[in-house]
Write a protein that binds this DNA or RNA. Structure first.
Length: 423
RNA sequence: AGAGGAGUGGCAGAGUGGUCGAAUGCACCGGUCUUGAAAACCGGCGUGCCGCAAGGUACCGGGGGUUCGAAUCCCUCCUCCUCUGCCA
């Protein structure tokens, strides 16, 4: 959630930023927050002074009782009961105002970074750079949903039988290839200084709120109602929430974590064109990198994280492009996001395989994730994360782009992980 | 899952209805002393909110209640420990 102070100080910037997301009533939203905050302050001032008076009187009563001046004490008691009623009412008002304020803040997305182009959808995303050459495939090349059947490496029907649509079964060399990639990605991240973690795959409500999946997007997560827990939609949630309510020692910054987890997404209502095969699933694997940095370091860190992701794609010899997402395509909590897309020569389209974002203080503000700066002041940190990488689409691109008449060639860097060089 | 016990500041640990935001020790930071360090001594040392500030206010696992007044009493939830049961 946005910092109220920042909204107040740079209101026009915030409005301009939110307009890039296509939010036309930005000024109205921000004014509401500012008004509510002022109301909150006023109420608190009143409440505090009443509480202060009550406290003083309570102490007087205690003293008088001890001195045996019961009548005097009782006289004061009457006064305090009036104050108590007032403070009770004010406390209730205060709570209501605070709830309204938080709700209002939850409704406002992050203010995009200056470099984010305005726009309404993916067509307005800006290509920053690209790499690699699109391979020429043989005449009878096939998309991955056919290849996986031909070589019997991924079975969707079996997944349907066990669970339902969107839960594939990886088999034999398919399963080995998946595991090989996970290991490759984790090793590369370790090499780049990320500390590996294995977080829970199930999170509580507070964690969902911390990273912004709740209260808005609960429909996207699988909800275990009996225990009121959620299946993680991404490792970002448990990993970032490790640092909820933490004041980090400056010496520990930047924090760099990597985690491999399955991810679970209901994807309610988002099925349709372009989601065949591995392109969109309810359960998929992902290696996620997360960094927590000082505010002044976050944008250079974002670039480094992109370099890391691009390094993986280069080693896998996959042609890719990097997009800077426009305001309309930008995630709710993100200030700047780069999407990495790999070109699938068989599907003849770009596949999003990674998304690297800087959330600035938006998540940290909800998480209460802070550090003591040089002036010994507690200050919000910046959070960043990126997929490095999302497995199914990478696997799809790898088998599609490396197919020939005789089968599928495994990229060189993966061979020591798979133990085989062809499928 | 059942029975019992417990949750207090970075840690340890006192505090069972009033002057307790909380003793004390350790850790940490600053200073004195010292060539330097250690020891000793002096001072500082939680977080949020309101306030220009002085200061005020809230927080003793979470939520609710009793009371003029709650770390302390009551209810409820959570977590941890011990024993029993079950289990990869």
């Amino acid at each position: 959630m946005l910092e109220i102070q920042r909204v107040q100080q740079n209101k026009s910037d915030a409005i301009a930023g939110l307009k890039k997301r296509g939010i036309s009533n930005a000024e109205e939203l921000l004014d509401r927050v500012i008004t509510l905050d002022q109301k909150r302050k006023d109420t608190q001032t009143k409440l505090d002074s009443i509480l202060s008076e009550s406290k003083t009187l309570a102490k007087d009563i205690g003293r008088l009782m001890k001195e045996g001046k019961k009548d005097e004490a009782n006289a004061i008691k009457e006064k305090t009961s009036v104050l108590k009623e007032e403070s009770k009412k004010l406390a209730e008002d205060q709570k209501n105002i605070e709830n309204e304020l938080i709700k209002a803040l939850y409704d406002i997305p992050n203010v995009p970074h200056d470099s984010v182009p305005a726009g309404t959808n993916e067509e307005d995303n800006e290509e920053v750079r690209s790499w690699g050459t699109i391979p020429e495939l043989h005449e009878n090349n096939k998309p991955h949903w056919d290849l996986i059947k031909d070589y019997d490496i991924i079975d969707f029907d079996l997944g349907v039988k066990i669970t339902g649509a969107g839960f594939p079964v990886y088999k034999g060399k398919g399963s080995r290839l998946l595991r090989a990639m996970v290991n490759f990605f984790l090793d590369e991240a370790a090499e780049a200084g990320y500390i590996e973690v294995q977080p829970p795959l199930v999170i509580n409500e507070a964690s969902g709120i911390g990273t912004g999946q709740l209260p808005d997007k609960e429909g996207q997560m699988y909800h275990i109602t009996e225990d009121d827990l959620y299946l993680i939609p991404t490792a970002e949630v448990p990993i970032t929430n490790m640092y909820r309510d933490v004041i980090v020692k400056p010496a520990d910054l930047p924090i760099k974590n990597v985690g491999y987890t399955p991810c679970f997404r209901r994807e309610a209502g988002s099925w349709g064109a372009h989601v065949r095969g591995l392109n969109r699933l309810h359960q998929f694997d992902k290696v996620e990198i997360v960094q927590i940095t000082k505010p002044e370091d976050s944008y250079s860190t974002l670039e480094k994280m992109c370099e890391h992701v691009e390094g993986l794609l280069k080693k896998l010899e996959l042609p890719y492009r990097v997009l800077r997402l426009c305001g309309g395509d930008l995630g709710f909590t993100s200030a700047l996001t780069y999407d990495m897309e790999v070109y699938s020569a068989a599907q003849k389209r770009w596949l999003e395989v990674s998304s690297v974002s800087n959330f600035e203080t938006y998540q940290a503000n909800r998480l209460k994730l802070r550090y003591k700066n040089e002036n010994n002041k507690t200050q919000l940190l910046h959070t960043l994360n990126g997929s490095a990488l999302a497995l199914p689409r990478i696997l799809a691109a790898v088998i599609e782009n490396n197919q020939d008449e005789k089968g599928i060639k495994i990229p060189d860097v993966l061979q020591k992980y798979t133990g085989f060089d062809r499928i």
